[in-house]
C-alpha cells in the first residue's frame, strides 16, 4: 500500500496541517510520500522531507502550480496515481477545490472531511454539521480522501526523506489567476492556533469587533474568529468564519463573545478543549457546550477579563 499526501504549503514552508495529514496517512498502513506542488518551492520540499515517517517527497515546480489551482493539480496528480493506492488532501479550500476533480477523473467517489482512520479502507467523518458521525468503508481500488487536519496529531519533524523532482503540467488551462486579497496578520493562523477568540453579531460593527477582540486576542496570543452573522454583516473578513461552512478549529481554548451557538457555528468549534462563552442571554445555546459560561454584557465583561488576565500575569 502506498499513500500520497498533498502538502499544504506557501512555497517556502510547509503548514502544520501537512504533518497532521501524514499522521492520518500512516494510520492507513503502508508507505507515505508527500507531494509539494508549487513554484520556486524547493524550501517547502526540503521542509516536507523532514516530516517523520515520510518515504520520499515528490516536488513539482512550475508557473502553472504557483496558485495551486484545481485544473493543473488534477493534471499533475491523476497520472501520479498509477503508483499509489490512495491520495490524501488537507480539507483546506485548496484541497477541497482539487480533490473531487482528481476523484472524478479516477472514477472514484471521494471520502470527504475525514476525522478518523480505522484502517486501510475504513474512515470516520461527520455529516449534518457534525450531528451524526458515520463510519464508511471505501473498497475502491484508488481512494481519494480529504482530511480534517485538526482531528489528527502532527507528525514530528525529525525525518530526512529524499526529494525527487517530477514535471509540472505545462497547460494551458481554462482558468487563470487574476488577483488576490489576502488578510495580513501577525496573529497565529485560525486553524492552527492554540487559542481562538471569536466574536458574533453582538459586536455590532467592524470598529467595535476589532476594538474589543483584538486586544484580548493579543493578550492571549490567540487567533481571531467570527460567526457567520458577524462576517455577513461585514464586521470581520470571510476567512474568519468558523463553522459548518467556514473553518473547523480545535484549539486548547476557544472564547465565544456574543455568539448564540447555532448548530452551524458549533460544528466548527465544539472539539475545542476548553470553551468559554460570554453572552448576556443565559439561555443561549452556546452555554450547552461551554465549559465556562459567563452571563454578562461583553461591554463590561471583556474589560474586566483584560484586567483579571493582567493581574494573573497573562
Amino acid at each position: 500500500m502506498a499513500v500520497l499526501v498533498i502538502a499544504e504549503h506557501d512555497n517556502t514552508s510547509v503548514k502544520d496541517s501537512t504533518n497532521k495529514v501524514v499522521t492520518a496517512a500512516k494510520a492507513m498502513g503502508g508507505d507515505v510520500d508527500v507531494l509539494v506542488a508549487g513554484a520556486n518551492a524547493s524550501a517547502a520540499a526540503a521542509a516536507a522531507a523532514k516530516i517523520d515517517g515520510v518515504r520520499k517527497v515528490l516536488h513539482a515546480d512550475g508557473a502553472t502550480l504557483a496558485k495551486q489551482m484545481a485544473e493543473p493539480l488534477e493534471a499533475l496528480i491523476v497520472p501520479l496515481m498509477a503508483n499509489y493506492d490512495a491520495v490524501l488532501f488537507p480539507a483546506t479550500t485548496t484541497g477541497k477545490n482539487a480533490a473531487p476533480r482528481v476523484a472524478a477523473k479516477l472514477d472514484v467517489m471521494q471520502v470527504s472531511g475525514v476525522i478518523g482512520v480505522e484502517g486501510a479502507d475504513t474512515f470516520v467523518r461527520p455529516i449534518y454539521a457534525g450531528n451524526a458521525i458515520i463510519t464508511v468503508q471505501d473498497t475502491q481500488a484508488k481512494k481519494v480522501i480529504t482530511v480534517q487536519a485538526t482531528a489528527f496529531k502532527a507528525a514530528g519533524n525529525g525525518g530526512s526523506a529524499a526529494v525527487e523532482t517530477t514535471a509540472a503540467p505545462s497547460g494551458p488551462f481554462k482558468a487563470a489567476f487574476v488577483s488576490e486579497e489576502m488578510a495580513k496578520s501577525d496573529r497565529p493562523e485560525l486553524t492552527a492556533a492554540k487559542r481562538v477568540v471569536s466574536g458574533g453579531r453582538a459586536l455590532g460593527s467592524s470598529e467595535e469587533f476589532h476594538k474589543v477582540l483584538d486586544p484580548l486576542a493579543d493578550k492571549l496570543g490567540a487567533a481571531v474568529g467570527a460567526s457567520r452573522a458577524a462576517v455577513d454583516a461585514g464586521y470581520a473578513p470571510n476567512d474568519y468564519q468558523v463553522g459548518q461552512t467556514g473553518k473547523v478549529v480545535a484549539p486548547e481554548l476557544y472564547v465565544a463573545v456574543g455568539i448564540s451557538g447555532a448548530i452551524q457555528h458549533l460544528a466548527g468549534m465544539k472539539d475545542s478543549k476548553v470553551i468559554v462563552a460570554i453572552n448576556k442571554d443565559e439561555d443561549a445555546p452556546i452555554f450547552q457546550v461551554a465549559d465556562y459560561g459567563l452571563v454578562a454584557d461583553y461591554k463590561t465583561a471583556i474589560p474586566e477579563l483584560m484586567d483579571e488576565l493582567g493581574k494573573a500575569g497573562v
Binding site: V108, M109, V111, T122, P126, G130, N131, A132, I133, I134, T135, V136, Q137, D138, T139, Q140, K270, I275, V276, E282, F287, Q288, V289, A290, D291, Y292, G293, L294, V295, A301, E304, L305, D307, E308, L309, K311, A312, V314
Partner: peptide, 26 residues
C-alpha cells in the same frame, strides 16, 4: 461506491459551569 457501516451520535461534551465574574473565569 462507499458503504456506510455505522452512523453514531457525536460525542457529547460534559456540561460546563457558569462562572459569576471575570475573576472566577480567569
Amino acid at each position: 461506491r462507499l458503504k456506510t457501516i455505522k452512523t453514531a451520535e457525536p460525542g457529547k461534551r460534559q456540561a460546563g459551569i457558569k462562572v459569576k465574574s471575570a475573576a472566577e473565569l480567569v
